[in-house]
């Protein structure tokens, strides 16, 4: 009997000690985890900025407000790998000029919107990826066989979109005497091209491929790539954990062939030959 009593006392002592140690341990852990905001540990929903007006990449369906396109699918895949299922993801339209601001003021958590990585932008946002390296190319009327490469744009009417640097690359950097015709956006450029008011539109091949498919064969991409446009995943500056997780997700996207399937789904009909290997990442630090 006494032996049983003793054991229970010892047990109680041990239990008391264990409780004390646990209490201390949990107190210490509580102070240690200074949680920083990252797309990896934030609450749902994850708000992702995408384009609303680029067929093939990011387009809003005017009837029900849903978004679709390659960028949208890529965003959904990455969000899934970050732990957000499809009903925990919210898409929001972002324009080319307000992507940095949208990330900074927190109206979006992540941007997947044909967002080229440039040194200037890298000062304001952190880029995961690139998830795809697009190339500047040329869109022409299918009937036009006079334009085979960028040099053939000399003395042709080329669309100039304010705020976009694509036309500069041809005329200023490439030193090709094309005749710029100003338009407010690429949608208008394409309309002008179909109406024979201009001869060519030059910007990223994925954007052009989307328009070529939407034209139903009336327009085609020349397939003469010049320049690399590395499409990155825009994140808040400092979110290194998020950036590394995004890169891991992109690696998986290419390893499990999702990227190849998505590229084929969205751009196969355009005549474009997309790269199907994982791009060289920019690095998170």
């Amino acid at each position: 009997m006494s032996r049983g009593m003793r054991t229970s006392r010892l047990r109680r002592t041990a239990a008391g000690l264990a409780v004390a140690v646990l209490a201390l341990a949990s107190a210490a852990c509580g102070t240690a985890s200074g949680a920083t905001t990252s797309v990896t540990n934030q609450d749902a929903p994850l708000t992702i900025g995408v384009k609303a007006d680029q067929p093939g990449l990011g387009q809003r369906n005017p009837s029900n407000g849903t978004f679709s396109g390659f960028d949208v699918d890529v965003a959904r895949y990455i969000a899934g790998k970050l732990g957000f299922n499809s009903d925990e993801v919210e898409f929001k339209a972002v324009g080319s000029a307000d992507r940095e601001k949208a990330l900074r003021d927190g109206s979006v958590d992540m941007v997947v919107a044909s967002y080229s990585i440039t040194p200037e932008r890298e000062r304001q946002v952190l880029f995961g990826g690139p998830y795809y390296v697009a190339h500047q190319d040329i869109l022409v009327r299918s009937s036009d066989t006079s334009i085979k490469g960028v040099d053939d744009l000399a003395h042709k009417k080329l669309c100039r979109v304010n705020g976009s640097t694509s036309w500069e690359r041809v005329i200023k950097e490439g030193d090709i005497p094309a005749e710029p015709v100003t338009a407010p956006d690429y949608g208008t450029c394409v309309k002008m091209l179909r109406d024979q008011k201009i001869d060519a539109v030059s910007t990223d091949d994925l954007i052009l491929a989307g328009y070529a498919i939407a034209s139903g064969g009336e327009l085609r991409v020349v397939n003469a790539p010049f320049s690399d446009e590395r499409y990155g995943v825009g994140l808040r500056k400092g979110d290194i954990t998020g950036c590394e997780a995004v890169n891991k997700a992109i690696t998986s996207m290419y390893q499990d062939a999702t990227a190849q399937i998505l590229l084929a789904n969205w751009f196969d009909k355009s005549g474009l030959e997309p790269t199907t290997e994982v791009p060289q990442f920019e690095g998170c630090s």
Partner: peptide, 28 residues
Amino acid sequence: TQDLLPKAYNLTLDSGSIVRRTYEDKRG
């Protein structure tokens, strides 16, 4: 340039991020 070098570079980055995470966890 589109296949082999990106893979090698991404492996370097990946190992770099393992070092960063391990450093933060273990030193902490």
